[in-house]
């Protein structure tokens, strides 16, 4: 059990890296990289929400199997569930950890509602992962998000140099950086996720 969990976590980090090989949630990584101070809690929050959405995905896939007519409405239902989860979490934070919530205010909503969280049930269905595997995968994705944001924040520090051509300063160089980095992940046969 733990081996599968660990194996799928490593898989999420390397071959099936959602961010670089799937191109999912890159704007969130960029936002986290621009705020190095709260990067750790941002990644923690995001992996928590990913975990919850993974388990919700399992429940959803069992309740509404693929062949049933309601399958068409499944994404909308799941979006509603994620919204409800976000509201609950926001209420919880405002009640108990008001100070920390004040600090995390700008990133809280974007860590709860983003493409990574919404993609979880789909990944679970397409790659036919069992309960433990999707848990490992969700944790791995959280870790992948944290490493991507950490690497990007250090890279952006280095990309602010004067003798870079004017046109590439700022965002375009970050795009090229991530392009080459996701090419590097190709070595793990992680070319294309979906």
């Amino acid at each position: 059990m733990a081996v599968q969990l660990f194996f799928y976590a490593i898989l999420a980090l390397t071959a099936q890296n959602v961010i670089f090989c799937g191109g999912v949630g890159f704007s969130r990584v960029l936002r986290a990289a621009r705020r190095p101070k709260i990067l750790l809690s941002y990644a923690g929050l995001l992996s928590a929400f990913t975990l919850i959405s993974a388990w919700m995905g399992i429940a959803l896939n069992q309740l509404v199997p693929g062949i049933s007519p309601a399958a068409f409405y499944r994404p909308a239902i799941f979006a509603g569930c994620v919204a409800v989860v976000y509201l609950l979490a926001a209420l919880l934070y405002r009640m108990f950890f008001a100070a920390r919530y004040k600090r995390l205010e700008p990133v809280f909503s974007s860590s709860a509602i983003n493409c990574i969280v919404l993609a979880m049930p789909f990944i679970q269905r397409v790659f036919r992962m069992t309960g433990w595997q999707i848990t490992g995968y969700a944790i791995g994705t959280g870790a992948a998000f944290f490493t991507a944001a950490l690497v990007l924040s250090h890279a952006m520090e280095r990309l602010k140099n004067p003798d870079m051509p004017k046109a590439f300063q700022g965002l375009p160089s970050v795009f090229l950086y991530v392009g080459i980095l996701s090419m590097a992940l190709f070595g793990f046969a992680g070319g294309k996720l979906f």
């Binding site: 670089f20 191109g23 795009f175 090229l176 392009g179 080459i180």
Partner: peptide, 10 residues
């Protein structure tokens, strides 16, 4: 492959 997309976007 996604990295082609990233490079072109850059």
């Amino acid at each position: 492959y996604p990295f082609v997309g990233f490079l072109l976007l850059g």
